[in-house]
Design a protein around this nucleic acid. Structure first.
Lengths: 246, 246
DNA sequence: CAGTGGTCTAGACCACCGG
DNA sequence: CGGTGGTCTAGACCACTGT
C-alpha cells in the first residue's frame, strides 16, 4: 500500500515522499485534522532518515497540506481553497485554476521608448531607449477578463514575434524555451481604477466602470528582472485570491 | 566583527545566525547581488554545523533577503520592496509598515445572527445563532482609510467589550493575551465594489466611488477559524502589496 | 579541476504534550 | 512517563558552475 521510494529515481527522496504523502491526502487516506504517522514511524515505513522525512513534511507544509503541533504530531489541513494560491502564475494558468478556458487577442506588439515607470521597474538605465511592448486582451471562456500590457528588455538582437506568441499562448513558456528564463518570484500591487473609454470598449463594459489594476514585476532565479506587466481586470468578473502566513 | 553565536541563548542557533546575517545585509556589509561566505566557510566562522547554517539561510531566503544559485553561491537580494510583504498583518501593523499612524473609531459592537456567508467562513453549523460583530472605521494619519467589519464565534460566555477593544487597539493582541489564540494563516480575496451612500459618508468620499473589498478568514495554529473580516478600502488611498513565489 | 550548493545518513539531546 | 516535533552534529556523496 505505501508506494515505495526508489533511491535510483532521478527525483530526490524527500520529493518522492512528499508526492506519496500528498497523494494519500488527496485520495482521502489521511483525513483533515487527523495526524499522519510520526516522523519516527515514517523513518521505518520508508527507510529514509528523519532529516529526509522532515524535508518532505516541510515542503507539504509550505504547500498548505499539513501543519505541525509541537508535542502532538503532524496533521492534515482542511482543503478549503487548497488550489495554488499566492503562487506565481501566468494569466493562462490562473484562468485554468479557476476552471475557465483561457484565450487572448493580441492588440499590439512592438518597440517603444520606455516611460519612467517602466524603466524603473525593469531596472534599466536612463539611456535605454527600446523595450518590447505587448498589449493583449485576455479572455476567460471567450469573455473579456482583462487588458494586459507587458514590457520586456530583451538581449540585443533578440525579439518575440506575433506568430511565436500566438503559437505558444503563454509568454512564460516561450521565455523558458527560447531564452532559458525561469520566473521564480514577483512583486505585485493591486489597486482600483476606473475604465477609460478605450479600455471600456475593449473590455465591453460601460465607460467609468471600476477595474482592478495589477502591476507585477517578475524576477528570474538570479533576481534579474524578466518583465513588467500591467493587467486591468474587469471589476465585475475578477477576484484576486491570496494566502497569507506568519 | 562577526558577532558570535551563544549556544546558551534561548534562541536556536540557526535563528541567531539568521539575525547576524540579516544585520550584515541591512547595514550594507553584504551588498546586493554579491555572494555571502560559502556554507563551509560559515561553518568555520560560527562553529556550527552545515545543517544549522542551511537552516538559517533557508529562513532568510523565505524572508526574501537571500537567494541561492547551485554551483555558484548564495547571494544578497536587492532590497526593492523588502518590507513585510504577503505576510499576515493586522490593520495597525499594515499602516505602520506604510509609515502611517493607525487609528480607529468603533462604530458598533454587538451580537447578531450570522448570515449564510459569515457562518460558512467561520465554519459554524446552521444552528449557531450568535456571533460577535465589530464595525470600525480605520484611520491612517487620522484620514479614513477603510471600513472594517469583523465576525467572531467566541466560546460560550466569553466576550469582548468596547473598553477592552479601545484599550488594546489591536484585536489580535487581545485574542492572544485573553484567549491564547495566535493567528498563523489566512485566506484573502480582493475585489472591486462601489461605495453605498452610508459607506461613502463614513469614508468621506462621493457616493459610488470605487472601493477595494478585502475578505479574509484567519486561522490559528491548529487551523481553526479565528475570525472573518471584511475591509472596504478607499480606492484612492489604498494599494495592496503582495510577493509571489514559485 | 576545485569550490559551490543539494541531498542524505545515523545518531543525539531538548521542549512540549498527554495520560 | 513515553511519544511527539525542534534543534543540532559530523560526517558523506552528488550535481552544478567556473577556470
Amino acid at each position: 500500500m505505501p508506494e515505495m521510494i526508489d533511491p535510483n529515481d532521478f527525483l530526490p527522496r524527500y520529493y518522492q515522499l512528499a508526492n506519496i504523502l500528498r497523494e494519500s491526502i488527496s485520495n482521502g487516506r489521511f483525513e483533515a485534522y487527523q495526524p499522519i504517522p510520526s516522523e519516527r514511524q515514517l523513518e521505518g515505513l520508508y527507510s529514509v532518515s528523519r532529516t529526509t522525512i522532515r524535508q518532505a513534511i516541510d515542503l507539504l507544509i509550505r504547500q498548505g497540506f499539513l501543519y505541525r503541533e509541537h508535542g502532538r504530531g503532524t496533521f492534515v489541513s482542511p482543503q478549503k481553497l487548497q488550489k495554488g494560491i499566492s503562487e506565481l502564475t501566468s494569466f493562462s494558468e490562473d484562468m485554468k485554476q479557476r476552471g475557465l478556458r483561457p484565450g487572448q487577442k493580441i492588440l499590439e506588439i512592438g518597440y517603444i521608448e520606455p516611460s519612467e515607470q517602466v524603466r524603473q521597474h525593469l531596472e534599466l538605465p536612463a539611456t535605454w531607449k527600446q523595450v518590447l511592448r505587448i498589449e493583449r486582451l485576455r479572455l476567460g471562456d471567450d469573455v473579456p477578463m482583462g487588458l494586459q500590457t507587458s514590457y520586456y528588455a530583451l538581449p540585443e538582437g533578440q525579439t518575440i514575434t506575433r506568430e511565436e506568441l500566438e503559437e505558444f499562448g503563454s509568454v512564460y513558456k516561450m521565455l523558458q524555451e527560447k531564452f532559458h528564463l525561469i520566473p521564480t518570484e514577483a512583486d505585485e500591487t493591486l489597486e482600483v481604477t476606473l475604465a477609460t473609454p478605450r479600455e471600456a470598449a475593449l473590455l465591453q463594459i460601460p465607460s467609468g466602470s471600476p477595474l482592478l489594476l495589477s502591476e507585477r514585476t517578475t524576477y528570474s532565479q538570479a533576481r534579474r528582472v524578466i518583465e513588467f506587466v500591467k493587467i486591468l481586470y474587469r471589476g465585475d468578473r475578477y477576484r484576486y485570491i491570496a494566502k497569507l502566513t506568519r
